[in-house]
Design a protein around this nucleic acid. Structure first.
Length: 958
RNA sequence: GGGCACGUAGCUCAGCGGGAGAGCACUACCUUGACAUGGUAGGGGUCACAGGUUCGAUCCCUGUCGUGCCCA
């Protein structure tokens, strides 16, 4: 029995349990042992996270694909799991400690703190997983992984050691993006350029050997800078080599104000004569461009900031070297002043000596950390890097060759753009939460990279014995006795960038580096579904790592979906307060409604502006389906054993079989092409506007009438089409369809495992050969599925049924329309006269009399040679249908209506004729198009003739 | 500055070379035996603007204006 009301919450809770208990989503089910696998790895959400709209969209689309392929008989693995999210998680736990006024991370120490994070993960790590389950995600939950679990950590270490051995991971001292708040390096991608209103300071740097005088422009050179405080670390001034103004100064020295250091004026094209004064100060230790300039001219790098962004001058040997007397006093005064305070004070000091020429307002981009939102400092440190350039090469080639395809395709350009200009990837982070780098340092700082500490120590001992730092005897003792080697080597404190482990996700989750059956069976995966915001962070890096370690692309299709915005198009953010919580929507409208909304709006290449009214609308759609199923149940509709829709005799039933097959094809093809919105739109229209609005309505007289073979067949067909609907809709609305599947009949199994109405047909060897002959191996756009027929049953094409039901629909619609126009009350029944009806109509009319009377509110249907006087006359598929309403209708109004119709017909005739009169049109347009135009003209002419006749009759009657 | 999108009904969006579509909102009517979370009918658009290609442009091309995003 179907409950009277559709209550999503009840159904969803119950169905989750049913699916879980039946292991429906388990990969490698015995009954699918011989099936072709279909694999998707979930973009692992942060353990700190909770479900937001982006997740809801992302996972809905993945689930649609997985459920679709599962129903198509594939052995589906949707691999779930979560990401340890280094910085984000560490921040959450630290904030928690602070809120609870507990000792901070540094006071606790590394070990204690990590225990604490694990504890926190244990407490709240399930949150997002449970939320994904509420959405209906059909992951194989038994295989859930975490980027820091044992197996994945093993993969991380293995990858690090291998890449290091191959020279693709190395340690280097260069400028990094330094977060002075989180006290760690971050990668370029984690830096957000934000426009900031600042100033451009024009500073006078005195020329060596001249007496500085603000009035004498030959005594100084003006440099423009946005960061005056870094001038303490200046080691040069650059001018453009072709800038006439400065030719004479190239090679000379200036004396750095306040500091007294002598620095050289160099010619470098980096300096833009159009910008500022055309001369720039060069601070190689605090600016990426200056770093390059410095390298080109052999300038010193003097770091004047500490890790927290304060001036660091005392005991700074680089800074103090070669400074004149008195410099130490200045250093003492400014030591440990914060960078922004220092900026102010240094400018004041420069002004007091006349070194500031002018200050202009200046808007420019300033780098900010995406997590801390503090200003990022280019900072000179030792960090670990991945040689991304080398790894990118095959990753670019794989997309170029079509081994991996982006959908929509335009993202490939973005991918190439970035990959071709890729910079070394800084992977070390000065954090605690993450994979600690498997590198150990000997007493002299030499690095030993190894999978375990034991291995590292053995390398180290071997090395130092050979170097005669220790004797062989000492080496043996230390190798045997843990205590004796204590502290001999120390492990690198840093951890890896979170994305390092995510990059391995498509194979590490399958058990790699062990040679597991899962790696064999499920790699490479089929599709990756993700947002464009992580193409660089994640997708590109999976491509690099997958190709390098597995020698195969990690996925063949990358489907990039849009961002979910609020209904005004603004990015959802906590600070704007415009966040729509998907869980609230699920509570209010049900997960199915939310899923359907997201799918219906997931058009390729366009952001989703989500309005809750849409969700409500699709909840109503679910209710509609619910009630249609109730109707079927009340009328004892069931599919008898051995029922074959293709053998239906009743026209109406043949028609719905045809329409069902048509929709099935549309939905199937749309999902295959990742056109989720088309698939959703197609099934929506079918359920509401075809099945409910017409099929069920037209079937009512039969279903409510006396028993007959026609009634039996109709009952069967109502139920059959309903089952087809449930199947087609299941990937989009899994809960309600599974529920209805269960309660509407005795079933062999779950809907989630039921066969999809259209199965892909395995291509025959001949077809494959043909395909190979027609498309070269480079033409990856053409996949076999698009070329070969995929249908495994008839599409029930039946033009006769279409014509007959189409006539009924047109007739009813037109009568309704004119009744409304004439303001005829619904309670008033009118007669219908079919004037000059064809044999076909005469035959059809009695068959449909009941239904037409019911739907068009008619008292009776009769035939006549001509329409009665004073009747409203309609043209239905070229024939006159008259409603004798003499005395009821307003003649003037009816005349106006006919006039309007005639005008419309005339406009159509004119348009068609002008086209056909155009010789070029007839000569150039496709034959079908011209023919179509002729048909249009004939139809319009006939229509006009009938309408004029009707008008004549109306005139006579009045 | 470079790149990628996007300007279609009041709103949110489809369509993308041969007569403008959906959902929501709106108007009128309807408690008809699945459904008022419903039914029926209806109003509403020089498809941003200007050129070009074409027999034919909302659709392709160029430019302009406007909006958003990404990268320097």
């Amino acid at each position: 029995m179907i409950e009277k009301n559709y209550q999503p919450a009840d159904i969803e809770t119950r169905m989750s349990v049913v699916w879980e208990d039946s292991l429906a989503f388990k990969a490698g089910r015995p009954d699918r042992r011989d099936a072709v696998p279909f694999t998707i790895v979930i973009p692992p959400p942060n353990v700190t996270g909770s479900l937001h709209m982006g997740h809801a969209l992302n996972n809905t689309l993945q689930d649609i694909l997985c459920r679709f392929e599962r129903m198509r008989g594939r052995d589906v693995l949707w691999q779930p799991g979560t990401d340890h999210a280094g910085i984000a998680t560490q921040m959450v736990v630290e904030r928690q400690l602070m809120e609870r006024q507990q000792p901070g991370r540094r006071e606790m120490g590394r070990e204690k703190f990590l225990e604490r994070v694990w504890q926190w993960k244990a407490e709240s790590g399930d949150t997002i997983i449970n939320q994904l389950k509420r959405l209906g995600a059909s992951c194989d939950w038994s295989r859930e992984r975490f980027t820091m679990d044992e197996g994945l950590s093993k993969a991380v270490v293995k990858v690090f050691v291998e890449l290091h051995r191959e020279g693709l991971i190395y340690k280097d001292k260069r400028l990094v993006n330094w977060d002075t708040k989180l006290l760690t390096a971050i990668s370029d991608l984690e830096v957000q350029q934000t426009e900031v209103k600042g100033h451009l300071w024009y500073l006078r740097y005195p020329i060596e050997g001249k007496t500085f005088n603000p009035e004498d422009t030959s005594s100084f050179i003006v440099v423009a800078t946005t960061r005056p405080e870094t001038m303490l670390g200046d080691t040069g001034v650059a001018v453009h080599p072709e800038d006439d103004r400065y030719q004479k100064l190239i090679g000379k020295n200036v004396v750095l104000p306040l500091v007294g250091r002598k620095i050289k004026i160099v010619a470098d094209e980096y300096s833009d004569p159009e910008k500022g004064s055309g001369a720039v100060k060069v601070t190689p230790a605090h600016d990426f461009n200056d770093f390059e300039v410095g390298n080109r001219h052999g300038l010193r790098r003097i770091s004047v900031l500490d890790r927290e962004g304060c001036l660091d001058l005392l005991d700074n040997e680089d800074y103090l070297r070669d400074l004149p007397e008195g410099a130490a006093q200045f250093a003492e005064e400014f030591h440990k002043v914060d960078r922004f305070a220092a900026r102010k004070r240094i400018v004041e000091r420069l002004e007091s000596f006349g070194f500031v020429e002018r200050i202009e307002p200046h808007t420019h981009m300033v780098p900010h950390g995406d997590r801390s939102n503090s200003v990022i400092e280019p900072y000179l440190t030792d960090q670990w890097y991945v040689d991304a350039k080398t790894l990118a090469r095959p990753a670019i080639a794989a997309v170029r060759s079509g081994e991996t395809t982006f959908v929509p395709k335009n993202w490939e350009k973005t991918y190439y753009e970035w990959m071709e200009n890729i910079q070394p990837w800084c992977i070390s982070r000065q954090l605690w939460w993450g994979h600690q780098i498997p590198a150990w340092y000997g007493p002299d700082g030499k690095v030993f990279v190894a999978e375990t500490e034991e291995e590292a120590i053995s390398h180290a001992l071997g090395y130092y014995v050979e170097q005669e730092v220790i004797t062989p005897e000492q080496g043996r003792e230390m190798a045997l006795d843990r205590n004796k080697r204590e502290g001999f080597i120390t492990r690198d404190e840093d951890v890896l960038d979170t994305w390092f482990s995510s990059a391995l996700w498509p194979f590490s989750t399958l058990g790699w580096p062990d040679e597991t059956p899962e790696v064999q069976r499920y790699y490479p995966t089929n599709a990756l579904v993700t947002g464009f915001d992580i193409i660089f962070f994640w997708v590109a890096r999976m491509m690099m790592m997958g190709l390098h370690f597995m020698k195969e692309v990690p996925f063949s299709t990358i489907y990039i979906h849009a961002l979910v915005r609020d209904e005004k198009g603004a990015k959802m953010s906590k600070s704007k307060g415009n966040v729509i919580d998907p869980l609230n929507l699920i509570d209010e409208y049900g997960a199915d409604a939310l899923r359907f909304t997201l799918a219906a709006m997931a058009a390729q290449g366009r952001d989703i502006k989500l309005a809750t009214s849409r969700v409500e609308g699709y909840r109503n759609f679910a209710t509609k389906l619910w009630n249609a199923c109730r109707f079927a149940e009340m009328n004892h509709c069931a599919v008898p054993d051995g029922f074959e829709p293709a053998k239906a005799k009743e026209t109406l039933n043949r028609w719905i079989a045809h329409e069902t097959a048509h929709t099935t094809r549309e939905v199937t093809e749309a999902i295959e092409a990742y056109r989720f919105n088309d698939a959703a739109g197609s099934i929506y229209r079918f359920v509401w506007n075809v099945y409910c609005d017409w099929y069920v309505e037209l079937a009512k007289p039969v279903l409510l009438g006396p028993d007959s073979p026609a009634k039996d067949e109709t009952r069967a067909m109502v139920a059959w089409a309903r089952d087809e609907i449930l199947k087609l809709l299941h990937p989009f609305m899994p809960f309600i369809t599974e529920e209805l599947w269960e309660v509407t009949a005795r079933r062999e199994g779950l809907l989630a495992l039921a066969p999809w109405p259209l199965k892909p047909v395995e291509p025959t060897p001949e077809q494959l050969a043909m395909l190979a002959a027609t498309t070269g191996p480079t033409d990856a756009l053409v996949s076999p599925a698009w070329v070969l027929p995929i249908f495994d049953h008839a599409d029930f094409t039946d033009p006769a049924a279409e014509a007959e039901i189409g006539w009924v629909i047109d007739l009813v619609t037109q009568i309704r329309s004119v009744r409304a126009e004439m303001n005829i009350a619904p309670a008033t029944l009118t007669a219908l006269v079919l004037a000059g009806a064809s044999a076909e109509t005469k035959e059809r009319a009695p068959r449909w009399a009941d239904v037409i009377k019911r739907m068009a509110r008619l008292s009776d249907i009769s035939f006549a040679d001509r329409a009665p006087d004073g009747a409203v006359q309609l043209l239905v598929r070229g024939e006159v249908a008259a409603l004798p309403l003499k005395g009821v209708i307003d003649v003037a109004a009816e005349r106006a209506r006919l006039d309007k119709e005639i005008a419309k017909a005339e406009a159509d005739i004119k348009r068609a004729e002008s086209k056909l009169a155009n010789e070029k049109f007839v000569a150039n347009a496709a034959e079908e198009v011209v023919e179509e135009e002729r048909e249009k003209r004939e139809a319009a002419l006939a229509r006009k003739a009938k309408l004029l006749e009707a008008m004549e009759r109306l005139k006579q009657a009045s």
